[in-house]
Write a protein that binds this DNA or RNA. Sequence first.
RNA 1: UGACCCAUGGUGUAACGGUAGCACUCCGGUUUUUGGUAUCGUCAGUCAAGGUUCGAAUCCUUGUGGGUCAACCA
Length: 562
Amino acid sequence: MSEEKKSLNFIEQIIEEDLSKGLDKSKLRFRFPPEPNGYLHIGHAASICLNFGLGQSYNAPVNLRFDDTNPTKEEQEYVDAIKQDIKWLGFEWAEELYSSDYFQQLYDWAILLIKKNKAYVDDQSSDEIAVQKGTPTQVGSNSPFRDRSVEENLALFEKMKNGNFEEGSHVLRAKIDMSSTNMLMRDPIIYRVLKKSHHRTGNDWNIYPMYDWTHGESDYIEQISHSICTLEFKNHRELYNWFLDQVYDDNNLRPKQREFARRNLSYTVMSKRKLLQLVEEGLVNGWDDPRMPTISGLRRRGYTPKSIRDFSETAGIAKRDNVTDIALLEFHIKSELNKITPRVMAVLDPVKVVITNYPENKEEILIAENNPEDENAGTREIPFSREIYIEKEDFREQANKKFFRLKLDKEVRLKNAYIIKANSVVKDENGEINEIHCTYDKDSKSGSGSEASKRKVKGTIHWVSIEHAVQAEVRLYDRLFTDEAPDSHKDKDFKEFINPYSLKIIKNAYVEPSLKSAKIGERFQFQRLGYFNVDDDSKTEHLVFNRTVPLRDSWAKMEQKK
RNA sequence: UGACCCAUGGUGUAACGGUAGCACUCCGGUUUUUGGUAUCGUCAGUCAAGGUUCGAAUCCUUGUGGGUCAACCA
């Protein structure tokens, strides 16, 4: 076999370089560090696949670390959901850890910082500190409290910790450089007073560490070799390294932060803040609404873990901002579902067909292939009778030669059944077609091997036997937004681009009887229509299907062009 | 009037000084009892200008365009 050299992404190249410079392969260790303040989305999936993928290819441990340093926003509900989503995606973490596990160590190190005269307690308000910070083009100025004695700082910090100060009254700051061109280096805040109960540490702490102080030190504690985050943290790297310098010991591994571009998807939004807004304002039905780009939404929609992993792999990673075409995600889900889903027949917009030369009480069982893509998928039985439903749009009284479906005086094949010819229509007082009267060629039964069955008829349409069909609810989804990048418009709110037709509910669809026992989560291809799964709301007496994604429809495309 | 990062077909990525490749999308053909699938094919790209070099997408300079940074958020 010719082994084709797979090109490495830039993170892998950095790792290879470190390895070639002498880093022991057994020292490789990664982490995925979500804040438990929302649900994971397809953008996180990129990071998850990257980190856990590196773990797999280098046989290195990957920790799941909840970055829970802000008790005002974090909840156990999110912790549970995040764990479920990662598992569902097919990954296993080495250890489940929490930044809050390190609160004591972080506190001890802060004391050390004070003793080294590299941190001080500032009594100023948040506004005063902000003013002193300057602007990107203007240097900041020193706090009047910057030169407090070590003893005083120690005493004050102790008081902060003990709850003797009110929120907002005091902070601990690193003493770095108020004139740095990097705003983050202008004496960043390390600790703030927050008298809030934490989802894990309860009321143990009155002070909580900030992200920058926490993240690098946590990486160090866990001996993470490569700490991979998104581009907006690029400017934090200098501070990450400064904090590391304060505690670093030569005998240990020194973590390295590297940044890649977050993955954006067209026709949706990806920020947790905006997704939360959609949920809270009732614009969608929760975090797992099938229109949401969340992992739980995609799961409910019928996406498979593999399709999401394949998508992440194909999209790749790099350092430039991007908006990936959602068609790529759809390509991967269609490609997988094509291979694995059983084909069934369902009619979403029914019109009645009467086969006038078919005996009134007769019913016969036809055999249908479950999946032409899978020889082992077997066959199933489908009942056929005199009265059936077909899709309204599969019939026209008159149409040109391009219309490969049922029309007056022309023939069409009923999938897995007979060739029929339309003879007449029965209309109501409004001119709506109530019934289509057809005759069938009784020798043309599919698979019978007869001459008639081998006749070439241009079109094949799906159907269900009225007497045997099961009524079902079908939910059709379209993209949530009408704009490719709804949050890229400076003058417009992203919600202005919400697609009012993103959800269409069909109450009276009819599915073939084999679906009567379909279970929640099961996936099917409704032939000629798309891929569907059974929604969480589904019950035996009231089946509910979601359309995961439609089939490619070149006919619809042709029609549209006209 | 700052610092840092980025710039390859419509989209996402590869090429690590030596033939600009892959995938998606779009468009067209063939096959087909799904207008699906499969299969074949077409269109289409190195931000600009200089420089270094036998040779530049790649290195350098300048410019242009985009992004990030002034939360007691992460």
